[in-house]
Design a protein around this nucleic acid. Sequence first.
DNA 1: TGGACAATAT
DNA 2: AATATTGTCC
Length: 586
Amino acid sequence: MVFLEGGFSSPRNDAFPAGLRVLVVDDDPTWLKILEKMLKKCTYEVTTCGLARDALSLLRERKDGYDIVISDVNMPDMDGFKLLEHVGLEMDLPVIKSTSDKLYLCKNITVMSVDGETSRVMKGVQHGACDYLLKPIRMKELRNIWQHVFRKKIHEVRDIESLEGIENIQLTRSGCDLFDDGYFLGGDDATSGRKRKDADNKHEDRDLTDPSTKKARVVWTVDLHQKFVRAVNQIGFDKVGPKKILDLMNVPWLTRENVASHLQKYRLYLSRLQKESDIKNSFIGMKHTDPPSKDSTASFGLHKPMNTMPDDVLNGTYSFSMSNSLAQSIDLKGQADRNGITSVPMTEPKGALSKDISDSHKTQSSQMSFDHSLGSVDSGVSFASFGSTNPSPYSWTDIPEIQFKQEYEPFQPENGFNQLQLPEPFMIEKEVNRSRTEVKPLLDEYRSNLVEHLSPADLVDLFPVQSKNQTLKNQVFNPISATKSSMKTKDISQNSLAYSEFAQRNLNAAGIGVPLASSSEDLQICWLQGDGYPMNFALQDFECLDYNNPALIAETPFYLFGAPRFDHEHLLDPTEHFAIDQGLFV
DNA sequence: TGGACAATAT
DNA sequence: AATATTGTCC
């Protein structure tokens, strides 16, 4: 763990890999040169060696002089495997083999069967090779080799006692790489949990740098997305950029490209939602005979969905996330005050909330306290960070103020929300592999129930149910924030809308959200996120803000997440729209 | 087949 | 860095 912190996690991985001591062994001088250059580009400390024997000598001289060895398989003086054997027996080093043929990844051995070279790979693996590189070797592959070292270190930390058994370590390494990598790499983001496993495994593949197989795709788990959203919020809508987000997210294995891609998707999503909302608004406006324009802008409530992070809570990150949310809320408030727009993203403190959830009173109290804290903080905090954003046309974070209200009633009055069981879907979803079919029905059912209770008005799109397994699985209910505001600029309003829609959609995906049409122009949305905890489900209530009254808005607690919303029945306004958001992302 | 998604290319 | 395109997967 210590190692992790110091070396990798914190400042992006850049720091650690630099200076990695690499010993390259290849009888082909040309390749040696090439590799040397490439490795140096990676900021590694490179030592080259044309003979396996010499390499062995070097290694013996300084057992701790190198962090990793990259060796060719075919060498005149000594078979690469032999070298591997020696290294494995005599020292504790990760060894990567490179061949002129194909590259194989230990992990993918199973897949290798198709390949004629399987035996070779197997051999390498048996001898303790931690990776196989194929020539020509790409920079990317070399850039990732440090991960082997990292992995090994982790193992060392883990099995401190068994350090002496090199072989054992190596075996462990090859056998458990996936798990370990995932666990550690993913874990450092603090939200490791059961759900991460899948993602982790994928990451591992990536780590191995396996050229032969496709890269594992990054799965934007709920918590990952939450981090993303938080980062976006912190940065400010107008200022966001993949790089900044990446830095804020502080997830070691994530690349800028990953973030860029996700950001792209996120934006598309928002825009799509916006369009939808616009349409909806216009529709509503027609119904009400209100001018569409009005509806589209001022009347629309924007909200920003925040995701809660169950994992965080579990891990004890809770406090962290909380603080963030508070900060965000505050910031938003500030903005709202200034701009007239408020959004409140909340993350739900799951741990705390969950406990309280059972007890409605508690919940309420917690909410109250929460609100107060916000208020106090609000006053005390400077919006500097956001300040910059304020001027900007908009920021995701800004999104509009949101007000939520929830209608609990519709749900199961008798149970009380505490007990409210989440729609089964959630539960089910948790299990990753559940079949969708199974889930869907449940969702539908759930929906229908909701609908019944909900105001008829605009349920329209309520649950598109895109239910994706993933989504549902990790869902956590988040509260949501309701935003409402009149947007200064069109863009803003759009974004806001988009945002809300985005959230909404998520909800829908989750199968939980139910947007209601509000009689009023403002749209209220409630988001729920399910993280799989039953307790989470509770809906939250949001108070309805008086859009017209800035002061009110400012004071209003935006959010509340975890709080089970039931308590606030009074707050609920049946007429309002609300949507529940699950975690967005999916 | 189409859409969502993430990777990759530009 | 931002955006466009591609390749997968379901």
